[in-house]
Structure formats: structure tokens, C-alpha cells
Design a binder for these strands. Structure first.
Lengths: 213, 213
DNA sequence: GTCTATAGGCAGATAGAC
DNA sequence: GTCTATCTGCCTATAGAC
């Protein structure tokens, strides 16, 4: 209350917490909740196991913290749209921002995948509540665009899943993508190419004409 | 050597082995290799733990057997194509058969996803060898079609990944799909709708005109 | 062939020294 | 705040009774 915390101690704490979170994201993404061990996380963070538990409380709490961090990134990406917006612009921005999330946060994307793969035990409420509402709000706008002949009358929910899956793939199946393409890693230019490809196919596929040539 | 094995014992063995494989596919798919326990597999199969190890040798061997079973299903799906085939027919058959694999073997599809998610430690050789060759053979045909103006000149490898990801999604992210659509399970008619949707978007998206209306 | 008992090791978590 | 030592329990795997 009366003393100001020494900045160095605070910096150490922040550095350690960050190291733990990043290491944990990697390990949980690879091996799932049960398959991840606090030992492995501690080794990846360069700290003793007890130190990790001291910082984060428990394995379960650490996992929840990571999921929340990922959902914040996800929500930061999603802005609202209205029927007055241009379908081509909105769909393209949608695909680009989702792919950007894959590129900048592949571990987080894989963590989310591992969570859903095991039946989403921690994210059930989020999926059935907040995210479901967001999807249906967007779906309504897509339908209004179709009614105004701005795009084909495709099922808007399947369309959203198509955008999610085709972008998510490059995080979750990275090992397969690298194995087949013979690359060691995907470069920024690769992501650019893939994003352009997906925008082109999906926009043309549902009858939206892009203003760009 | 001289005695013929009693059919009943054989039948018991086959029944148990099948129960173990199916149970193991479920548990490995959900929790990954490390997260899966022989105990959990035994309970799902309705057998004592030691019995499971007696039948399959080891946890590792069981996992490898399951991956091989899944790769057999995968290979059974893939037939060869040539430049003389009709692009619309081939692409549609490709999407439909991949979606059929998702529908009929969701556990196996998720097992494959979990394996790749952890960096494909057991499937590295398959991905960099056999599968890579298969992809590039198809890619060549797609490019020839584009040269003959039968489709747009899109990158054929990204196109294959698009088909894989958009169909695979309904196995791997089933929990999310069900949460958002509010369903308890996807019916055969849902898979039909989704497949039609994907065929429509992807074929139109890469400039292939389907013969069906 | 099937099961019980158990070995040997690693899991998550905590108590207490410094 | 940090680390060592340790508790309890579950893990894979096997030996041996039946």
C-alpha cells in the first residue's frame, strides 16, 4: 500500500508469466489437456516445475487462462457488419483477418483445435452462447445480401464454417502442409498467396464480385 | 497344427480386438497419444486393462495399428485421374468421397487430426513420401486442365488443401458445429446439404462448370 | 486364454528450507 | 519469491495364479 513495488521484481514476474504462458500454449496445443504435463511446460519455459505451479496455481487454471487469452484474440478480430456494407469487402476482410490469426498465433489456433477435438469441455458455454449468437447475426446479414441479389443464396452458416476451416487448416495441419509442400516453414508470402487464393475461390464461389481485379 | 481352432474362440478374439480398436480410436482421437490411457481404452471396450495389453502388445503398437487402419481407408478412397477426365466430375467425386470418409469414420478422421496436430511424429514418412507424391500427381492434372481452359489457373495444391480442410472440419470441429447449429448430431441429410454446398462453391469458385443444374 | 497383483516410474500438488 | 524434497495417486507393463 505505502511501498512501491520494485520494478525489477515486477519485471521478473511478468517475464516468467509470459514464458510460462507461451510454453504452455505450445505443449497443450501439441498434446491436449491430459497429454500435457506441468513438467514438460516447465522445461519449455526454462523454470522448475514448482515454480510454474507457484505462478499459475494449477494445471487446470493455466489451461483456462490460455483459452481465455485465445478467445480475446478471437473477439478482437470480429467486428460487426450490417446489410449496408459491401459483401465483397466484408467477406474478404473476414477471410484475411481469420488467416492473420492463423499466421500470427498458430499455437493458440492449435490449442483451440485440441480443445474442440476433445469435445470442447471447457468451451461448451462459449460455443453455445456468445459464438452462436455472433454466427447467427452474421448469417442474417448474408441472407439479406442474397435477397438483394448481391450474392448467391447459399447457406450462410456453412459459408462461415468454410472460411473458418480453410484458414484454420494452415495452423492445425501445418505438419501436413509442410510435409507435402516440402517447405521448412510457411513464409509471409505463402500466407499472402493462400489468402488471395481463398478470397478468389470463395467470393467467386458464392457469386460475390470483388471490386479488385 | 493338427487341430482346427474352435470357431468360438476365434470369434471371441475377433470381437474383442474389434472392441479394443474402436474404443482406442475414440480415446486417442479425443485426448491424443499421450493423453490417452490404456485404462480409459479398456473401460470403453468393456474389458480389463491387462486384457487390452494382452491383445495389442503395447499402447504404442495399438496407436500405430489404428493409424494404419485409417490410412488404408484413406487410400481406398483415392483413385487415379487423368487429363482426359471431366474436371467437374472428378472434383465433385473428390469432395463427395472425402466428406463420406468424414461421415462414416469421424473418429478415425479425428485420430488423424490429433496425430498431425502434435507434429505427425508417426506419419512423417507417409506425408513426405506417399501422400506428397499423390498430391503432386493430382496437381499436375489440375494444371493441365487449366492450360486447356477447363478451369481457372488456380494453385492446385491450395485447392486440394481447401477440399481436405472444408470436409475434415465436420469431424474435427464437430463439437463446435453442433454447439453453433444447436443440433445434437448431424443427420445424413445435413451431410448431403453441406456436400452440395461445398461442391457448388468450390466448382464455381475455380471456374469449373458442373453438368448438373 | 484370462485375470489379479504388483513393479517401477512419472503425474500434479504441497510443505517447508532458504 | 524461489527451490528442494516429498506425498499420493495413476501410468504402462509384466509376472504368475488360475
Amino acid at each position: 500500500m505505502t511501498t512501491i513495488t520494485a520494478p525489477e521484481a515486477t519485471r521478473t514476474r511478468l517475464r516468467n508469466e509470459r514464458a510460462i504462458l507461451d510454453a504452455a500454449e505450445q505443449v497443450f496445443a501439441r498434446h491436449g489437456y491430459r497429454g500435457a504435463s506441468v513438467q514438460a511446460i516447465a522445461e519449455a519455459a526454462g523454470l522448475p516445475k514448482s515454480n510454474v505451479l507457484y505462478y499459475v496455481g494449477s494445471k487446470r487454471q493455466l489451461y483456462v487462462t490460455l483459452l481465455e487469452r485465445m478467445m480475446e484474440r478471437w473477439n478482437a478480430m470480429l467486428d460487426d457488419i450490417s446489410v449496408d456494407d459491401d459483401p465483397a469487402e466484408v467477406l474478404e476482410a473476414f477471410i484475411r483477418s481469420k488467416m492473420e490469426l492463423t499466421r500470427t498465433h498458430p499455437q493458440g489456433s492449435r490449442l483451440f483445435a485440441a480443445e474442440v477435438l476433445q469435445g470442447a469441455p471447457f468451451l461448451q458455454d462459449y460455443l453455445r452462447g456468445e459464438l452462436r449468437g455472433w454466427v447467427h447475426a452474421r448469417a442474417k446479414v448474408f441472407e439479406q445480401w442474397a435477397a438483394k441479389d448481391l450474392m448467391d443464396p447459399v447457406d450462410p452458416v456453412w459459408l462461415i464454417f468454410l472460411i473458418w476451416s480453410s484458414t484454420q487448416h494452415y495452423a492445425d495441419f501445418e505438419a501436413q502442409v509442410l510435409g507435402i509442400t516440402g517447405r521448412e516453414a510457411l513464409e509471409a508470402s505463402d500466407y499472402q498467396d493462400i489468402t488471395d487464393f481463398l478470397c478468389r475461390i470463395i467470393l467467386k464461389g458464392c457469386g460475390v464480385v470483388s471490386r479488385r481485379p
